[in-house]
């Protein structure tokens, strides 16, 4: 019988644990998150003819994200008067757990997947559904006006994009006949990338998932220029860092899901290993979503609700019809 210390060392160095903690898990996400925060600021600056962060290292401020993490980590923890302490602290923590659960479902390469669930696609979408509820809870618990308005906006916004998001993913399920994410990639290995037959679905998916990520043009819950970061307004430094973490994880997880569903995931010519293909595709999607931020103005809440329930829903039903005809064949008239 091995002693407990040996058991702990065995657990910590097991492949399973390493996948969760190091790669593709939390540490690599934290480093990527710090890097992409810098990249997004630099990209937005270039679009707006500014310079962007440039002081924190010789190479154009590339360490800015890490500097921000250290700065935020050592700030004072102020919880506003009358706030519900439990929900105020637990909402970002729970959001981080939800983000980690999302990453566990993505097949990064053949065999590099934390949980190969048979119902991976609906599980991903169901887990991500929880996050607007957490936003509402965080906004309510702060006992302040701007966070509460932000939380309510998250709640209403969810009703607009949630159904088109599910229905755009439905087209992929109809064509592949599986809910397993690895199965969807294997289908694309034999039949080509799904972005060609599902172009409309891919467009709908990226629009609705941008709304799900609460990024511009759909960042109503945290609109800086309207309601001062919305539901994040009252969060002090360390907790603000915890709030920003899940936001990036969601961006990353949705980009990974998009490349899995429509761009063939880890598939690609064998010159480059599969995992590099996967990261290349994911990074392209992340950069595209970042460019949305500097391209589109923010929508109004009533416009978003109206368009979500009319245009997006109609287009996603059209997409289902297209997927149906792809599966059964166009009937001869």
């Amino acid at each position: 019988m091995p002693d407990p210390i040996t058991q702990i060392i065995q657990l910590v160095t097991s492949t399973y644990f390493l996948e969760i903690v190091v790669f593709p898990g939390l540490i690599s996400i934290a480093i990527l998150g710090a890097f992409f925060t810098w990249f997004e600021r630099k990209l937005t600056a270039r679009v707006q003819l500014r310079i962007g962060p440039s002081y924190s290292s010789p190479a154009g401020g590339i360490l800015q994200g890490f500097a921000d993490i250290i700065k935020l980590l050592f700030k004072e923890l102020i919880i506003p008067e009358g706030a519900d302490r439990f929900f105020f602290i637990m909402s970002p923590v729970t959001a981080l757990i939800i983000g980690a659960a999302l990453l566990g479902l993505i097949p990064f390469a053949p065999g590099v997947q934390i949980a190969n669930v048979e119902v991976g696609l609906p599980a991903f979408l169901a887990i991500v559904t929880l996050s607007p509820t957490l936003v509402l809870l965080a906004g309510w618990s702060a006992n302040s006006k701007f966070p509460f308005i932000g939380g309510l906006r998250a709640l209403f916004q969810q009703t607009a994009y949630e159904i088109p998001l599910w229905l755009s993913a439905l087209g992929v399920v109809m064509i592949t006949g599986t809910l397993n994410l690895t199965g969807i990639v294997q289908f694309q290995q034999n039949n080509g990338w799904l972005i060609l037959p599902q172009a409309l679905g891919a467009l709908l998916f990226i629009v609705t998932s941008t709304a799900e990520m609460e990024r511009l043009p759909f960042d109503l819950p945290e609109a800086e220029s309207e309601i001062m970061m919305g539901w994040q307004a009252e969060y002090p430094g360390p907790l603000f860092m915890l709030v920003q973490g899940p936001a990036f994880i969601k961006l990353y997880a949705f980009a990974a899901l998009f490349s899995t569903l429509y761009l063939g995931g880890y598939l690609g010519p064998a010159i480059i290993p599969p995992i590099v293909w996967f990261f290349l595709k994911t990074i392209v999607i992340i950069v595209a979503v970042m460019l949305f931020r500097s391209t589109f103005p923010r929508v109004r809440l009533d416009q978003l609700l109206r368009q979500g329930w009319t245009t997006l829903l109609t287009l996603s039903i059209v997409n289902i019809v297209i997927a149906y005809f792809i599966v059964v064949g166009v009937p001869a008239i």
């Binding site: 919880i79 008067e81 006992n143 302040s144 906006r153 209403f156 009703t159 009252e234 809440l301 609700l305």
Partner: peptide, 30 residues
């Protein structure tokens, strides 16, 4: 220091304000 943020004004009234009722039908539909 512990007062809620209201753009530099002294915070007034309850923090948990009113519900935005005009979008309530969308929630029922959802």
């Amino acid at each position: 220091k512990k007062a809620p943020f209201e753009s530099g004004q002294i915070a007034s009234g309850p923090g948990r304000t009113r519900f935005i009722i005009q979008y309530y039908p969308y929630i029922l539909m959802f």
